[in-house]
């Protein structure tokens, strides 16, 4: 793996993905250490009327619990939050999550851009944004916000992505700090945890 800035300043991780990202998320969550200390916010495109299933499936693969937050849920250290079906997931100042039913953004609700943008606004340069495989450009502007606020941007290697539209769209609007294969993302998170644990 290339040199990555493993800095203990980071306070949160936000992950987005669409087509093909479910398997990738499973792999990441399956390898995440149990004592992983940063909160992780996940937004992936999902079907409107299917409320359940995704959360159960991800939880089975994950060593840690994956939670769909309720509106105004306080954010806790080391918890994994998945944007619920048919709601946008916002991160708010004051350390909590809000949900909203506004119009779709990029034909999506939850929209990756919304979770990333609100996350960037709250965590500023202490945020790591990771965008995975996907078939549309949702998440690109969100990654730009992460970068604009001084956070770290990582995309899944387009060559490895099932569909590379999403990571490539992010590349075209902002500077990407690291292009990583899934195994490298996992290794990075494990190494990062050793630093942020201190």
């Amino acid at each position: 793996m290339k040199e990555v800035d493993l800095n203990r300043k980071y306070k949160a991780i936000v992950i987005g993905g669409s087509a093909g990202s479910f398997q990738v998320l499973c792999k990441i969550l399956n390898k995440l250490p149990e004592d992983f200390s940063l909160p992780i916010f996940i937004c992936c495109h999902r079907l409107k009327h299917i409320r359940n299933g995704l959360i159960e499936a991800l939880s089975i693969k994950s060593i840690k619990e994956v939670k769909e937050p309720d509106h105004n849920e306080p954010i806790k250290r080391g918890k994994i939050y998945l944007a619920p079906a048919n709601y946008h997931m916002n991160i708010e100042l004051g350390n909590y999550i809000s949900l909203s039913t506004e119009e779709m953004v990029n034909n999506s609700r939850p929209a990756i851009d919304i979770t990333f943008e609100t996350c960037a606004y709250v965590y500023k340069d202490k945020l790591i944004g990771i965008l995975l495989t996907g078939a549309n450009k949702d998440g690109a502007l969100g990654m730009k916000k992460v970068k604009d606020y001084g956070g770290m941007t990582i995309i899944q290697d387009p060559e490895e992505s099932v569909i590379d539209t999403m990571p490539k769209a992010a590349m075209s609007v902002t500077k990407i700090d690291h292009v990583m294969k899934v195994e490298e993302i996992i290794k990075f998170l494990i190494e990062l945890n050793k630093v942020t644990q201190l």
Binding site: H71, N90, I91, L93, S98, S100, E102, I114
Partner: peptide, 9 residues
Amino acid sequence: YSSASFKRR
């Protein structure tokens, strides 16, 4: 109001 969505509105 929830501030993130209020700003967007």
